Amino acid sequence: MGADSSSKQRAWVLFDRIVDEAAVDSEYSNPWVIDMTGALRYEPDFATLERLLGVPLLLRAATTTGVPALALDVWIAYELRRAGFDRNAVWPRATHPRILPAPVAKLLEKGALPAKMQAELLARLEKKGNIKGVTHSYASILGKNYLKQVDVILTDWDTGPEVLISTKRMDSSYGKNAPNRIEESYGDAKNLRLRHPMAALGFVFGLRNDVFDKELATADWLLDLLAKLGREDDAYHATCVILIEYGDEVLPPGDNGADDEDRAVSAGLEPADEDEDEPLVIADALIDNDLKWLPKVRIDHSRTPAALSPARFLALMVEHVLDATPVNLHKQARDLRRAPNPERDDPATSAAS
């Protein structure tokens, strides 16, 4: 088992526990709140995000393993399920296999198959790595001209893709890497938007906040272009920046902070490695011990532009889906939005404390 595979499998175990602990009695909290002025807004679960972002630091997982960016994917998928969308239609799923067609997932529901057959199918899906043509580690979607690996998706057989969100992560070498990331995101947006004009198309950029101290001009340039990416008619419906703060002492050794994904795989020229090992099984006590030592991570809300805030981004993604579908679809998501919670504390203040 390679180092990248091992890091990712260990990360999934910790990610899953963190997301499980974010639910109360297996139910997520309603993300919609009414603020003091009577306005409706989306309140992200930043506390869970900060814990997820601590996992790659705990594992000393370099950016090349894909684990730092995966923390963002897990959180966004968690937020879409929190917003009331079908848990099996949101990829990556909260359990292995991470990419599973919704019709297959429905076979696992109680009563869909004889009990013995259902148990055998569930055991095969959960214990095996990936089954060719059925389950996957990554999702690729055909755009206008080429396949594109997309990080977070809401899709079903009946509707086709309804949410397509790409994520990038950059923790250093900002001036060197930022132009490439922006150029790639423009091309990816046009490719996906032209084939899927009704889908909510989003782009999330995870950025370490020391960029403001090390390369302020690059930070200003990057945030400006990210905002403009979300205003183009043929690009993304919304864009977002997540400013991440943590100490240098937890940086993986030799990590240059670049999001070094395989471009050929990302563009669909080569298949992603689907020959994954079986999911790791780790004792609960060991998981608990690991989570006790999660490095401290904080989201920098004070320097996040309002136009790029995660709250605005998630609200726009959810509302776009609801506006683009008839009222008999996504009933739970509509019900949650119609029954918001009263505002408690300022989410940015409580998350940063």
Rank of each mutant, 00 (worst) to 15 (best):
A3R: 15
A3I: 11
S6A: 10
S6L: 14
Q9N: 07
V13H: 00
F15M: 10
D16N: 15
I18A: 07
E21D: 10
A23L: 13
V24D: 09
D25W: 05
S26A: 06
Y28D: 11
D35F: 14
T37A: 15
A39V: 01
Y42N: 05
E43S: 04
E43W: 04
P44E: 07
T48S: 12
L52Y: 05
L52H: 01
L53F: 03
L53Q: 08
G54T: 15
P56G: 05
P56Y: 00
T63W: 10
A71N: 05
A77K: 03
R81D: 08
G84L: 00
N88T: 13
V90K: 01
L100Q: 03
A105Y: 01
L107R: 05
E109T: 14
E109P: 14
G111H: 05
L113I: 08
E120A: 10
E120S: 08
L122G: 07
A123F: 15
R124I: 13
R124V: 05
N130L: 01
V134F: 00
S137R: 07
Y138D: 14
S140D: 06
Q149I: 03
P161W: 04
L164Q: 02
L164N: 06
Y174N: 01
A178R: 06
R181F: 07
I182C: 12
A189L: 05
K190L: 04
M198V: 07
L201Y: 03
F205Y: 10
F205H: 06
R208N: 11
N209R: 02
N209M: 08
F212M: 08
D213H: 07
D213V: 02
K214T: 13
L216Q: 10
A217Q: 11
W221Q: 13
L223V: 03
L225P: 02
L225E: 14
R231L: 12
E232L: 08
Y236C: 03
Y236H: 05
I242C: 08
L243N: 09
D248M: 04
D248W: 01
D248C: 02
E249P: 04
P252E: 11
D255L: 15
D260F: 02
E261T: 15
D262F: 07
D262W: 04
A267V: 12
G268Y: 03
D273R: 02
P279I: 00
I282P: 00
D284T: 11
A285Q: 09
L286R: 15
I287W: 10
K292Q: 11
W293F: 12
L294Q: 00
R298D: 05
S302N: 03
T304G: 13
A307W: 03
L308F: 03
A311M: 02
A315P: 04
V318R: 04
D323M: 06
P326T: 14
K331H: 10
D335W: 13
R337W: 03
R338I: 01
N341M: 03
E343Y: 15
E343P: 02
E343W: 04
R344Q: 14
A352Q: 07
S353M: 15
